[in-house]
Design a protein around this nucleic acid. Structure first.
Lengths: 250, 250
DNA sequence: CGATCCTTTGAGCGAACTCAACTCGGGTGG
DNA sequence: CCACCCGAGTTGAGTTCGCTCAAAGGATCG
């Protein structure tokens, strides 16, 4: 007998449940977490390198990216985060941010105070494991990003990024039939792919010419996913999307 | 009143303590973990992409690397691991390996069964947090690796790798005065830096010509660390080496 | 209906690649 | 004990992928 969880709580629980077992008590403990909702403008930062944040952030709606700025003024995008994700779990255990977190487009986030999270994680090992697992999947995505930057030519690199985006969005119901919102400018994409904006433009044109993708406004359409995956050398294993691939922690 | 912990246990405890508070009970619980020691030849693999390991591995002596192999036969090195580290904590929560782990040189490792670790982590939140923190530092290193591959020219990329190696080894007492064992071939280095072996060779020559480093046999000597750091754009914050930088989890 | 940001195009340049050959040292078997 | 063999490092030459700089079209929004 309790109040129905709010939409953000609901989203968080669903996310954690996509790859972990939670008991009813676990879920209701999560549903009781105090959240503080905030709306962000496009390009607004949430935390910056060097900060000591006191809360974690859950993305409810929009698109976030993590990035590092270099002395010469350039920036490197480290990852994108879609609704339901917790992009700065690490601040729970690493006091100083080694990178920045910001909104790509207008977004809505919910903050959860570290203190309350620490308590929850101490009391409930299963919840702790579920969060830990999320941060490990994050790391797996970083690793694939390394492969992308280190070993793939421009066209494949872009293709890979698009495939990953699609599969992650699809997993939370935000993409289907190869179509999804893609509000990333070519300059931004350059920072993410380690390529110049000009070269991004030319590589995108190649992908379009090959009838692999089509773009209009801020919409991305994948026209031939199997072929795009082949071109990009994309294998989704690293996303650890299937519960069957999980370790038993009992 | 208990037996003194073995050397591997000692090393693990010291590692976790470099950045987490552990109570005496925590430490003795860790000291009681059953370990299974194994010696590895150079280039021997510990786990491969697709495997479902049943234990985690603690490096006692030697050098390990994590890598992914690509369809075209090339490989990308994702990280190096030095004694005291736990390079596959993720297998505790992600059943299927998305990359391989192997020995660069002859090494000695200790295996800890997942089951016993899960039990320990369930029983002792502080120990759990200490391990979690290690895996978050791993992720921080991946992120910096992304910056390295995505944004730095060859010479700086190599310099950065060398600086990181030095500071990590120094933190566990395996390097001093800028000198340390560096048993990595130029071809290997190429896989790690996303450069061809030939270009690695020429970039190393540049660093030597600038009197930044000297190499002999499998030994690396940094001749001018401050200048090397400047050339490489190296900032050690991301290693989270100082306890002062830690979050309070109470 | 400017103003501004984003995308597109052209041209020349440069960093890193490939391929190939040669050196050097250490091991190993005849 | 020497011949040779293999792995690692080095060098040269030509090529290519992606970069920079610059400017011209589109779109979007006060």
């Amino acid at each position: 007998v309790q109040a129905a969880p709010s939409l953000p709580h609901e989203r968080l629980i669903r996310k954690l449940e996509t790859d972990a077992e939670l008991s009813d008590e676990d879920k209701s403990a999560i549903a009781r977490l105090p959240l503080h909702i905030k709306d962000l403008r496009a390009r607004e930062d949430i935390v910056r390198e060097g900060d000591h944040p006191g809360s974690c952030c859950l993305l409810i709606d929009g698109l976030l990216h993590r990035y590092k700025s270099l002395p010469d003024g350039s920036r490197v995008v480290l990852s994108y985060h879609i609704p339901g994700e917790l992009p700065d779990l690490q601040s729970l255990f690493l006091r100083t941010m080694d990178h920045s977190l910001g909104a790509v487009t207008a977004s809505q986030v919910a903050f959860i105070a570290h203190q309350t999270l620490h308590q929850l994680l101490r009391d409930r090992p299963s919840v702790s494991f579920a969060f830990w697992r999320q941060s490990l999947i994050d790391a797996a995505i970083f690793r694939e990003w390394i492969v992308n930057l280190g070993a793939r030519p421009a066209r494949a690199r872009l293709g890979h990024l698009i495939c990953e985006f699609y599969e992650r969005l699809q997993a939370v119901g935000l993409a289907k039939n190869g179509e999804f919102a893609f509000p990333i400018t070519q300059a931004e994409l350059g920072d993410a792919a380690g390529l110049s904006a000009v070269h991004i433009n030319r590589s995108l044109q190649e992908l379009r010419a090959e009838k692999l993708i089509a773009t209009e406004a801020r919409l991305m359409k994948i026209l031939d996913l199997p072929r795009l995956k082949r071109v990009a050398g994309y294998e989704s294993r690293y996303l650890h999307l299937h519960r069957a691939f999980l370790a038993d922690t009992t």
